[in-house]
Design a protein around this nucleic acid. Structure first.
Lengths: 202, 202
DNA sequence: CCCGTCTCTGGACGACCGTCAAGACTTTCC
DNA sequence: GGAAAGTCTTGACGGTCGTCCAGAGACGGG
């Protein structure tokens, strides 16, 4: 029979799945989707490669599960800045601080996100999850933008989707430069955001 | 010895390399980097897989050569619209027409570009070429934007890099939706560009 | 204590990967 | 026409991939 589908053991199984998913995320972030094998993932965990098929049907289900766990962490990154800022300038400062921190602090996690989002352009199995996360991120950006407009007594001049696409484009270019070793990546991103954002909210 | 490095045969070799590079591009666009093997590429050409190592040292050189040929086609896409437009509105219309046409007409080629650009985040061997193409595209966008400003008697309100990142972000989101089968992808992109651009040039 | 269930290991499978080399075929030149 | 150079095919190599499975070990209830 399969893993303990009934009884209290369910959460034990869920925990193991999380554990393996974490190892998978770590591996994917380091190697990228194209170069990550199940044995690489198992090597980052404390188990052997066979166990992956005990907790996941196949590779797609494993990666899908990874992505689902990843989303939960991402989509609240700027919420504290939104909640505590008392002026528009404070909000922008908080947003930029957080954005810069993630750019320089965990660039690998972000290149993984872009990698997986790209894979969804080729692999339909990833599309639903990717679209869901993208929507979560869009809403997160929108919370920042609409609060910014509120604090500065103005209105957003573009749709939620447009704001997300714009900021994501800026971040992606910065990430490319950051990973190429350009020390100006973070400052340039800050400058670009401060340049662009106020013009789209006035 | 290797292929005819001397004499007139050089262009024959270059032509063959182009032929194989075209097959490689076609394959990569269809399958994505992660799923493309040399045998898949050879199957799209009229040759067998062994010949690839006769014209290219290894897989990296082949793909690098592909990307280099790809760039030549990309970076002049909007130049005609820039040259012929007599008003700002005409220019935007021409730009949007061209952008929509490539979004719906060759989405596979574009997902390939994003795929390869993403690979450069993991694989340093691709970084130089990707950065070079990105710069070419940035300049192409800048030609459009600065001409637009000129025609409308205004000034661009952000850097060349920022404009490129913004428009690229909008296009990438549209491409994701297009490939997911969303019929609103193209209209939404047009709307977003018309919304955002004038505010960054005024 | 034994037995059934859950968990995990480690090896084996067929397929596919990039690479290479031996040789067949074609072209060129003396 | 024969030799040399250029071009392409074919098959093999070591390796890695996702997947599967037989069985060892751990664990808990009778």
């Amino acid at each position: 029979m399969g893993p303990a589908v009934e009884g209290r053991a369910v959460d034990k199984v869920a925990q193991r799945r999380s554990e393996l998913a974490a190892a998978a995320l770590e591996t994917l972030a380091e190697l990228g989707y194209a170069r990550t094998g199940l044995r690489d993932i198992a090597a980052r965990s404390e188990f052997s490669h066979g166990v992956l098929h005990y907790y996941f049907r196949d590779k797609v289900e494993l990666i899908t599960h990874c992505v689902r766990e990843y989303k939960a962490r991402c989509a609240t990154r700027y919420d504290e800045a939104v909640a505590t800022a008392r002026t528009a300038e404070e909000l922008v400062a908080g947003f930029l601080r957080e954005q810069t921190a993630t750019l320089t602090g965990e660039p690998q996690m972000h290149r993984l996100w872009y990698d997986l989002r790209n894979q969804s352009m080729f692999e339909p199995a990833f599309r639903a999850d990717v679209a869901e996360i993208d929507l979560l991120l869009e809403r997160m950006v929108w919370r920042v933008v609409s609060r910014y407009a509120e604090l500065s007594g103005t209105r957003p001049r573009a749709s939620s989707a447009a704001f997300y696409a714009v900021l994501d484009g800026l971040f992606q270019q910065a990430l490319l430069r950051q990973l190429a070793g350009d020390p100006q990546a973070a400052p340039s991103l800050r400058a670009a955001v401060q340049e662009v954002l106020p013009q789209l909210v006035h």
